[in-house]
């Protein structure tokens, strides 16, 4: 379990102060995967560096199973760091070492005997699906395989927290899915909390139990995936279950209404039912349906023709257990996350 309290990082650029992190707090319990999503410049990289103490935060605490990393120095800090396994976007393997020696590096640091290390490395390479790659060099492996090695290396010291920094951003879609499946398979490992920092919604949708939105150094929204998605106003909901950005924004002379339904209701014809009830032809002009964390969510945008009261449509939809609201399409409607 990792607990971050009020983490703040202030950089000085000449005389200017840059608050890269501004009071970030979050908790990831063991056995769960938490996603932190944000666009470039939101403070993701700074967060990774502060969580691993590669940079010292200006204020705040990073605790792993109750041990405060920010209070540790030198040898104690080096020991504490081994409680966090860090996986980089570009794997950052050592080109001069074979795959086995890369995975064995953290074990070498703790002085593990060669025979014991070899056995452990072989087991880790099996876990990440590369049992035969031990004698190869990183340059001989594909990007996805290198990332697997990075994961094996991060797992070597049996950390309590696995921290992924944009783990799939350099990979193609197919390889991304394979790596995400691997991360999901690690979820069951004893006592392991997983934190994934990414800008890809796809990653959050596929593997995360809970998610936080990082914007301008602050966590502006946070919660279990099923909760944050189940809202017509949230920025995370918009990002995870948004109307496609190229959907027609012009409803003609009609009024736009957004409908959100989840669970079993997502597969019932709520719009058709409302259409009959108000006696008007409601036109679905855009929508997205997603299966997230075991639940189906449907977010539809419908056009209510002139002459029909949109408020009545909203009421009828809500009566069926869906969430609905009249959409005011002002600019900035789309989330940039």
């Amino acid at each position: 379990m990792i607990t971050v309290t009020d983490l703040t990082k202030v950089y000085h650029q000449g005389r200017r102060e840059v608050r890269a992190l501004d009071g970030v707090s979050l908790t990831v319990p063991a056995g769960s995967i938490h996603g932190i999503i944000g666009h470039s410049g939101a403070g993701k990289s700074t967060l990774v560096r502060c969580l691993t103490l590669l940079d010292r935060p200006t204020a705040g605490r990073v605790e792993i199973n109750g041990v405060d990393l920010t209070a540790a120095h030198d040898a104690a800090l080096r020991t504490a760091r081994r409680r966090i396994g860090l996986v980089f976007q570009q794997a950052n393997l050592f080109d001069s070492r074979t795959i086995a020696d890369n995975v064995g590096y953290p074990l070498e640091l703790i002085g593990m005997k060669k025979a014991e290390r070899d056995a452990k490395v072989a087991e880790l390479l099996r876990v990440v699906g590369l049992p035969d790659s031990g004698p190869a060099y990183p340059a001989q492996l594909s990007g996805g395989m290198r990332q697997r090695v990075g994961i094996a290396r991060a797992l070597a010291t049996e950390p309590d927290v696995l921290l992924f920094d944009e783990p799939t951003s350099a990979l193609d879609p197919k390889t991304t899915d394979e790596i995400l499946d691997l991360i999901l398979s690690l979820k069951g490992r004893e006592g392991l909390a997983v934190l994934v920092i990414t800008h890809e919604m796809h990653v959050v949708k596929k593997i995360c139990d809970s998610v936080s939105l990082l914007d301008d150094g602050r966590i502006v929204e946070s919660g279990p995936l099923v909760e944050v998605v189940n809202s017509l106003d949230g920025r995370l909901a918009e990002a995870l279950l948004g109307i496609p950005p190229h959907a027609p924004l012009d409803a003609g002379s009609g009024t736009l209404v957004d409908v959100l339904s989840s669970g079993p209701k997502a597969s019932t014809p709520v719009v058709a039912h409302t259409s009959r009830e108000v006696g008007a032809e409601l036109n679905i002009i855009a929508g997205s349906v997603e299966h997230l964390a075991g639940t189906t969510f449907s977010h539809l945008r419908i056009s209510v023709p002139p002459g029909t009261d949109p408020e009545r449509v909203v009421e009828s939809l809500r009566a069926q257990g869906a969430d609905a609201k009249i959409t005011d399409l002002t600019p900035n409607e789309e989330l940039d996350a």
Binding site: T52, L54, R78, T79, R81, R82, I84, L86, F88, Q90, N92, L93, F94, Y105, P106, E108, L109, I110, R153, T157
Partner: peptide
């Protein structure tokens, strides 16, 4: 990034220089 990796895994400065 490689030095970051060495650090994050708990290398001392000497280890980072000599081993990485």
């Amino acid at each position: 990034g490689k030095l970051d990796a060495a650090h994050a895994m708990g290398s001392t400065r000497m280890q980072s220089v000599a081993k990485v």
